[in-house]
Design a protein around this nucleic acid. Structure first.
Lengths: 205, 205, 205, 205
DNA sequence: TATGAATGAGATTTCATTCAT
DNA sequence: CATGAATGAAATCTCATTCAT
């Protein structure tokens, strides 16, 4: 039971390639099975269906991604905002961790974030954005409380969550090299942080 | 004679709904034709094939979008950069025009930008980004020339192009109301402009 | 009524090209009409249907072919066989006439003889062969009567009819030039005549 | 396990009937599958596509035909021409072998030679003719060398190749009984051999 | 564990043909 | 005389899925 069957791995491997290449919808189970030297029936022994196979491919990496994200969010949440003074480089550690998890499962992350159309994971970045949203909204509220005459601009909170997630998706899509990725992401995150401070509040009219 | 349009329009209308709902790939010609009270054959009288139908749905709006974008880009390009002093609200007119064209063909734009997977228009936002890219890179070069010890950070140029296009796609996706859209987009663009100035250059090492 | 409409001719001309190129079955009425600058409906004004159009294309040439063939057959039939002494060149006049009619409507003849599959004229060469058959069988009978201990070999009569028709079909297919065709056909016919004399009878056992 | 063949055979059998009756082009996969008590999908399990099915029907017989033909040609090629003295009956063994292979797969041969229009085997007889052509041309050259003042008439070589192949196609088409076929083919081949000697050369002017 | 066979529903596309205007 | 519109039937093919063995 706990013995990961060799063929299961083979299937997973070939599925990864196929999903990456064609996307969930256009991926062919037949081809995946054939590439693995098996038949479609075998796929249905190991996985419930096409969706199940897709899920299995991205499962582990997905969990790691969520863990990293949530861990980061919880930590940030614990910060004493009144003491917060934004500086470039603030998010270095978070960036490193994200890139670590993203690039150590590059293919799977590409699949999850860019090739899931038609699957139940379609629009997964939006779910991540939603997650950030809820955290950042609370954060923004505290911020607003400390600045008289201002209130939270909900759309901007959402937008910054969007941009932040997108920063990583964009990076993943455009820079395959992990080290270069790390170098590229820094100014991006810095610019987001600065923008956040300046534009997440609006006049309380 | 001139009323032959009736069924063609019906087809176009039903296609719009179907593409919007299911995306290009999963959209069914059968269903489109049936919804219009016609047979699939009729589709092939009016349009070359599925792609042709898709193209016909988005053709006009697409042209308007490109015109607006290019017009805006050319104008910006003519600016004397040395005299440029960024201020919030700088892009108000451009924003208004973009939102005008985007929201006066809301469904079509959603289809073009979010539902084209599998069609020849797949990844259209990326093409727009590429367009901005080339303009902004030149712009950034001029900027770099005026600031000693700095050079253009290519990745950031691309990133800001990406964010700018995304600002509108995001807006379209999350805010159906045109007036609210206009209100929402402004701080977004402002934040982008500020970010641009601050982060598009890097140390010339 | 007797005014051959211009468009009818255009249709006929384009149909000829299309049939020649694709054969009856794969020929597209739409393309024919479009090539003629008309619509499919027009085809149905001038002709009953696809078959009717095909028939109209080959009608005249077909009649000429049949006339020539029958005329030749009747003449040959009238010969006093007892006085017959085969010599090379015997069929020169007939060959000339056949090639005349075949090559003065080259395209139509190609269509009739090689591109009619799927139409009511499919296997037209076989009908011509049948025609020759019936004439030659009578001829062979008379011949057999003049040679004691011999009788007609029906299969060989049929075979020689087949070869004779085939000689022209083959020629048409392999030699576009009329003069060269005439030169080529002569030894072919000579060899057939010789073969006829020698092999059309079998021992009367 | 080895009995999977059952339905495959049924499919092949029904395909044979359909191809024979309608020809490749007009044959319906739907009908073939239905006749076999299966769905069209089943066809695509066993065969790549319509062409693949057609190929499978004629594959074996085709190979046998080619083997026989090539074997015969190679043997003939080895003959010492200077010692050659044509006699009726010379080709008896070859005729027997050809008829054997032709009639032991009668339907398949009919399909290959008469019903392949639209498939990749369209015009197969012409390919056989081409094969003979190349052999006989060499043969004719040697012959010409031994007769002063004569040269090869290329058209006649081609014509006799054509007639020879046609002799068998014609036979197949007109005589279903194998024994009668054998009887019929002999004088045909004899007449061809005689014709060959007499007409394959022309005056060297 | 995995195969091989088969289903069934669906997809897009093509075409001759019809007919009101 | 000809069009433009539309039909309807058929065509080939693809695929995820199932299931007995």
């Amino acid at each position: 039971m706990s013995e990961n069957n060799e063929n299961r791995e083979k299937l997973l491997e070939c599925a990864k390639k196929e999903f990456l290449e064609k996307g969930f919808m256009k991926a062919s189970l037949r081809k995946i099975a054939a590439d693995a030297g098996l038949t479609t029936g075998a796929v249905y022994f190991f996985f419930k269906d096409k969706s199940g196979l897709f899920g299995a491919v991205i499962d582990e990496p997905l969990k790691q991604l969520m863990d990293t994200l949530e861990h980061h969010l919880n930590e940030e949440n614990g910060e004493d905002f009144s003491a917060y003074e934004p500086r470039d480089g603030d998010h270095d550690k978070m960036a490193e961790q994200m890139i670590e998890v993203l690039y150590s499962h590059y293919d799977e992350m590409m699949i999850l974030l860019n090739k899931a159309q038609g699957s139940e994971y379609e629009g997964y970045p939006d779910r991540l954005i939603g997650l950030l949203d809820s955290y950042y909204y609370v954060f923004a509220q505290k911020y607003a409380d400390s600045v008289p005459g201002k209130r939270v601009n909900g759309y901007m909170v959402h937008w910054f969550s969007h941009v932040q997630i997108n920063a990583f998706v964009h990076l993943l899509t455009h820079e395959r090299d992990k080290d270069k990725a790390l170098k590229n992401i820094k100014p991006v995150l810095d610019s987001i942080v600065r923008g956040w401070l300046g534009y997440v509040l609006e006049d309380d009219s």
